[in-house]
Computed example of a mutant assay.
Amino acid sequence: MNVRALLVMLLALSTPAFAQGFAGLGTDAAGYRSVEPGRTFSFPTDHGPHEGFRIEWWYVTANLEDADGNDYGLQWTLFRQALAPGEEGEGWESSALWMGHAGLTTGERHFSAEKFARGGIGQAGVVAAPFEAFIDDWALAGDVAAEQAPNGDTMANVSVNATGDDFSYAMTLRTERPPVLQGEAGYSVKSDAGQASYYYSQPFYRAEGTITVDGEEIPVTGTAWLDREWSSQPLADDQEGWDWFSLHLPGDEKLMLFQVRSEDGSSYYSGTWFTPDGTASPLANDAITMTPLGTTGIDGRIVPTQWRLEIPSRDFEIITEALNPQSWMATTFAYWEGPIRFSGTHEGKGYLEMTGYDAD
């Protein structure tokens, strides 16, 4: 990172907008663009950045397995943060700050790494077609232009790579199915007060490639999930964190569930159930129950790493188990992120992200 980018980052971290994390997700968003229902999504354009909104991310998780049946998980995330409303500007006038997170999980170990970059100077950014999202030498990139891509989707076939201390990965992700919209046609509500994001996913990737741990290359295959969200104030000011699940169900069905926790102990729930052809069934706040069953002490925090998830209307009840309960992302804004297994009325694998668990 160059000195000027470091100064920009430190200035940003000192502002009230960062009090709740990277984007100050519950702070007032005056001057930024708002999220409204009824938006029409367009691909590949929406794979690219959305100027005028305060926070945005490109987020990949993968459940992987080697030839001996050992399980692994990986995460790759790029965040775009606008430090001021309006057009971001070019070159050194850019108001964008970028942050990258990479994680790799085994049954015994968890690795994490992060990068920060200044916008406008070629150090990080996203282009919709041909698709590329990058920060320094980490990249999530498509291999064809829109007119050559399946369904015109420049993210149908992508490669993803990252390197950190003692770990790296290089994977290809492929699908023939178009992206799917979360919530009500891509409008994802996060609170009773109406805070929301625009949100779509690609949960049907097949993954293949190699991971490297302490210099040992391990061929792996599995499934991967992409999430894309952008907003300016996705949380209410009294919400302090969330628990998010992406689940690969039998028969190639997919399920996303989350709860956003408030300071008074209440939660707002949401989810979407996808059939194998991508048909979406949104799940209402009162349709979902999430119950923590077991906890793990991590970095001075008590984090729930075993859960019961229930959707009575669908005769759905599972218990999740973390592949590695110590899957702590020791990044500037720390959180839990790792692969899970689940059993009950349905069996499979998935990913869990948990934020807002403060140290005692």
Rank of each mutant, 00 (worst) to 15 (best):
P179A: 14
G183C: 07
G186F: 02
Y187E: 14
Y187W: 15
Y187S: 08
S188H: 03
S188C: 08
V189Y: 00
A193F: 09
G194I: 08
S197N: 12
S197D: 06
Y198N: 09
Y199A: 10
S201I: 09
P203D: 08
F204C: 07
Y205N: 10
R206L: 11
A207Q: 03
E208L: 13
E208C: 11
T210G: 08
T212V: 15
D214K: 12
G215Q: 09
E216I: 15
E217L: 10
E217P: 08
E217K: 15
T221Q: 13
T223V: 14
A224M: 05
A224E: 01
A224I: 09
A224Y: 04
A224D: 05
W225M: 09
W225S: 05
D227K: 09
R228T: 04
S231N: 05
S231W: 00
S232G: 06
S232Q: 05
Q233K: 15
Q233M: 12
L235P: 04
A236D: 13
A236E: 07
A236F: 03
D237F: 13
D238R: 04
Q239A: 07
E240Q: 12
E240W: 06
W242S: 01
D243Y: 02
D243L: 00
D243E: 13
S246R: 11
L247Q: 01
H248P: 01
L249A: 04
L249F: 06
G251P: 01
D252N: 13
D252I: 05
L255E: 04
M256C: 02
M256G: 06
F258P: 00
Q259A: 11
R261M: 00
D264H: 07
G265L: 03
Y268D: 00
Y269K: 04
Y269H: 15
S270E: 09
S270H: 06
G271P: 00
T272N: 03
W273E: 01
T275I: 07
P276A: 10
D277H: 10
D277R: 14
G278R: 02
T279S: 14
A280P: 04
S281V: 13
L283I: 05
L283Q: 01
A284L: 13
N285H: 13
I288W: 04
T291R: 11
P292S: 14
L293G: 09
G294W: 11
G294L: 13
I298G: 01
R301F: 02
R301L: 03
P304Q: 11
P304V: 10
T305A: 03
Q306H: 12
Q306M: 11
R308P: 05
R308D: 10
L309F: 05
L309T: 06
L309I: 10
E310Y: 03
